[in-house]
Design a protein around this nucleic acid. Structure first.
Length: 556
RNA sequence: AGGGGCGUGGUGCAACGGCAGCACACCAGCCUUUGGAGCUGUGGAUCUUGGUUCGAGUCCAGGCGCCCCUGCCA
């Protein structure tokens, strides 16, 4: 399904070209997550490019964790990342780790030293930084740059054996301190870190940096296409330099623009702060852009994948409108979710001319988009709840719902006409009284008269109480990333609203994760906090609401 | 400023020298037992200047704008 009508973008074109002209005769890509955080929607784009490019070319995908920095990485993220990737439907032939190649990589480093292409530098981090030069001025050679091969070899071995403290020395490639590309000014290959690693334990006291590890790992694994985001474009000359010096298999690196989305933040550091400073309730808080949050919120993998497909691939810096994601989620749920009636802000309605003790079972369609979804019975009685929004004492123009003197349809039940209201001492409406027309059972009038509105309801005696968690955008600004602290200053105070609603009795013990459309409101899914006493529903995404929009527009 | 990259409706992506199109958003209408869904329709874009060409979003030259790069992060 995913490969039908496959899009044509510059990456797929490049891969096809490489196959055609013989640069490669197979395709193998790699998924290179760093296990230092949870996956977010931005990762999905990169993952799907890697996965689909391999799949569409009958190639392979290797899941390779980029675990070169033990000070930041943890095992718990490895399992979480795999779980999310599987949920997306991604299939990989092999799971590897950068750390699997530490021995071989070290041998390759020694080869470079032997060739006089790498050296141990004793400068302090400050000196290294100072001597790197600036964007416009060349750097200065390290005083240790011309050490003998023998000395470099010995020093490197001693670094590896843990004889020197953290930060005291690094191994650097010997390229050109005056290079216009700063990445080529003798980049660091190994740093000393006396930190245990989640896989290699305390076997290593030096760890490779990204630039030294990644491309070599790609080569070792026979990766043909190393697809990454735009900020690595500047690193490509270095990527190629190492492979050239080593004279090993040469994968091709191709860069694309990462996914950005408005009304959210995507950087791991900022997401971490939201969690750690309790602006949200954990990594799976449904307001987060993480995959765990979206799963909890009720987004289907198909919807997310559809979104990624529609966003496309290019090299332009871009910010995708979150409305597109929501449209994909709605489109998916419209076709697949069962309809139910739920009232999230209840208003009591008494049908004065309805028999006191009568209970009728009304026939309700489960999904008008899917004939196979069947039907169900919904109990109806004299006292019901409707949505507060569905009643107005003094209706604004074009308001078609319930108001004194107006007749509306109760979905799948009867036409009712409002006669009067009952107010409390403070003047708030606490009850709405209506009269029903017994000849309209099921919702059709035998005399052919029309009503302009159909509203949903639940029977007060039969409905059950439920916690409804209403979510809105986490940030009130389109671009919360503006400014360092800016994102914390534009948190949307109304991003979470917890309501106590009433749902029809078929929802008494719902299955966790089940997705429903609450008619006229939106799509909701059953949260894991659900108990036997009380179901908890998350708003996945609201239904498009032409009335609210029109009314807001008028008031503006 | 040095290097690398990018400029197409509001947003994202196409058009590979030949009528600038698709999706989302927006607006209008039709339909409707969800003011949902569906259907129909409208408006709106090639950063700029010059050149090549029968013909340029596409090729060439200059300008302008935006993004990334001075971690022992990835």
């Amino acid at each position: 399904m995913l490969t039908e009508n496959k899009p044509n973008d510059f990456i797929r074109e490049a891969v096809a070209e490489d196959l055609k002209n013989g640069r490669f005769d197979y395709v193998r890509t790699r998924l290179p997550p760093e296990p230092n955080g949870y996956l977010h929607i931005g990762h999905v784009k990169a993952f799907m490019i890697d996965y689909l490019v391999a799949k569409e070319n009958n190639g392979e995908l290797i899941l390779r964790f980029d675990d070169t920095n033990p000070t930041k990485e943890e095992v718990e993220f490895v399992e979480a990342i795999k779980d999310d990737a599987r949920w997306l439907g991604i299939v990989w032939v092999k799971e590897t780790y950068a750390s699997d190649y530490f021995d071989l990589l070290y041998d390759w480093a020694k080869r470079l030293v032997l060739m006089g292409k790498a050296y141990v530098d004793d400068q302090t981090p400050e000196e290294v930084s100072k001597n790197r030069g600036t964007l416009t001025e060349p750097g200065k050679n390290s005083p240790f740059r011309e050490r003998s091969v023998e000395e470099n070899l010995e020093l490197l071995e001693r670094m590896k054996n843990g004889e020197f403290p953290d930060g005291s020395r690094i191994l650097r490639a010997k390229i050109d301190m005056a290079h216009s590309n700063i990445n080529m000014r003798d980049p660091a290959m190994y740093r000393i870190l006396h930190t245990p690693h989640h896989r290699t334990g305390d076997a290593w006291k030096i760890y490779p940096l990204y630039d030294w590890s990644h491309g070599q790992n790609d080569s070792m694994e026979g990766i043909t296409h190393s697809l990454c985001s735009l900020e690595y474009e500047d690193h490509r000359p270095l990527y190629e330099w190492f492979l050239e010096q080593l004279d090993v298999f040469k994968p091709r690196q191709i860069e694309f623009a990462r996914l950005n989305m408005n009304y959210t933040v995507m950087s791991k550091r900022k997401l971490r702060r939201l969690v750690e400073e309790n602006h949200v309730n954990g990594w799976d808080d449904p307001r987060m852009p993480t995959l765990r949050a979206m799963r909890r919120r009720g987004y289907a993998a198909e919807a997310i994948l559809d979104f990624i497909r529609r966003v496309g691939i290019a090299k332009n810096y871009s910010v995708t409108d979150v409305a597109l994601l929501e449209a994909c989620v709605r489109e998916d749920l419209n076709k697949t979710s069962s309809r139910r009636m739920a009232v999230i802000r209840p208003l009591k309605v008494v049908i004065d001319n309805y028999p006191d003790d009568l209970v009728e079972e009304m026939d309700a369609i489960n999904n008008p988009e899917d004939a196979d979804a069947g039907a169900r019975k919904v109990p109806f009685s004299k006292v019901i709840y409707i949505e507060q929004d569905d009643f107005r004492e003094t209706p604004p123009p074009k308001y078609h719902r319930l108001y004194p003197g107006n007749e509306v349809r109760l979905r799948y039940a009867y036409f009712v006409k409002c006669t009067h209201t009952v107010k409390d001492d403070a003047g708030n409406i606490v009850e709405v009284h209506v009269e029903y027309d017994p000849s309209t059972r099921g919702g059709d009038a035998s005399d052919g008269r029309k009503v302009k509105s159909t509203i949903h309801w639940v029977s007060a005696a039969h409905a059950i109480e439920a916690e409804i968690r209403m979510y809105d955008r986490l940030f009130s600004k389109e671009n919360p990333e503006e400014g360092e602290e800016g994102f914390l200053n534009c948190l949307n105070a109304g991003s979470l609203e917890i309501l106590t609603g009433r749902v029809e009795p078929s929802l008494t013990t719902p299955e966790i994760g089940a997705r429903y459309q609450f008619e006229r409101l939106g799509y909701f899914c059953v949260d894991k906090d659900t108990t036997a006493e009380k179901p908890v529903f998350n708003l996945t995404v609201n239904l498009k609401d032409a009335w609210t929009k029109a009314e807001k527009g008028r008031n503006r």
